[in-house]
Design a binder for these strands. Sequence first.
DNA 1: ACCTGAACACCGTTCAAGT
DNA 2: ACCTGAACACCGTTCAAGT
Lengths: 213, 213
Amino acid sequence: MRRDEATRRPARKPKHAYHHGDLRQALVQQALVTIQEHGVEALTLRQTGERLRVSRTALYRHFADKQALLAAVATEGFALFERALAEAWGDAAVPASRERFYRVGRAYVDFARRHPSHYRVMFGRFVDNVAADPALAGSADRAFGVLVTALEALQGVGLVRRHASPELAVSVWACTHGLAMLFIDGQLSRPDLDAEAMVLATLDRVWDFLTPR
Amino acid sequence: MRRDEATRRPARKPKHAYHHGDLRQALVQQALVTIQEHGVEALTLRQTGERLRVSRTALYRHFADKQALLAAVATEGFALFERALAEAWGDAAVPASRERFYRVGRAYVDFARRHPSHYRVMFGRFVDNVAADPALAGSADRAFGVLVTALEALQGVGLVRRHASPELAVSVWACTHGLAMLFIDGQLSRPDLDAEAMVLATLDRVWDFLTPR
DNA sequence: ACCTGAACACCGTTCAAGT
DNA sequence: ACCTGAACACCGTTCAAGT
């Protein structure tokens, strides 16, 4: 279905119309949709442009290359992640509690399950040099900041032991991340598995990690 | 650097020599080397053939497509995985013990760290329809069989509680898998993190999971 | 059976050129 | 500034043809 150069151009589609509004944001959204529908490996810059009725190379005005587009997707993902975690943790004025911690843990896994494309781009090997992209590094730091804040508040009320080693923190992250990955890789979608129970079982273990002994 | 058709062909390289020996196995090995050096996304069939001094399409005599080649890499990975786990668990005649379980856990994470390319292909989204490839499904089942055998032996001597729910087993897997993934994604290579301590901290938690209460 | 080159329909990226 | 098409050096895969 190629443009016929003999055709009268339709009134509403002037030949050299620039893209309406924020092309950059439109590209990020379109990329995300493609990833959601067909996976990261199916993402092509040419198709992304085409779907937005824009030339194949228009994208390079906004992104250095494909990596940079993926980095933008990841950055947006971390922003959403931060909001989801912060919402789950709730008001800083409310006293920290085990229940609030569980809400954050649940929100972590829920985010991965509801935004698998974002999560995969955020934590997969698709974005290589996180350090090289300040926007990406910043959004990732802010998201993890919510977790740090929550843990510090729990330490403040004595529910989480102080001086937790970084190795312990990594173990906590590993359990949550691993569960999230198994979920979005479809390896837990067997009828005999209760998703809620798996999340709870894991969070119970994570809580034990953190509790003073 | 293209072949010059005017050049005398070297004596040791007859024009239509077939590939020496097992081309299929050579392709799998070459693919693995490329993945190790430059990642899965850098794997191309054309280059793989070229490096083996074989035409671009010779590969299709042995594999239906790129997926099938990756499936073969994964299959080989599961075979190595099985051997590593079985070796760590050791002789079936020796009574099951917490120490032997820890050896298996360590072997799991060690395998991922020492064969990150294999592990990524085995558990990443690169191999889509595991069920469609009987060889792959079989090798995966045999590898997990070692874990099942170990757990049953531990149940036999009363160290692991019986009737452990599948959700519990998933939590155990999630923690180990998550730690492995964080390792091979390079997210734990900070100087302040002690790899051994992280593995131990996680295995301690996993053991608590399994212990009767 | 196993291997080959030519061909097809794609990629990411660069570049000179247009408004 | 922002967008464009043409061009370059790549892909995976198919196919008719060779031994």
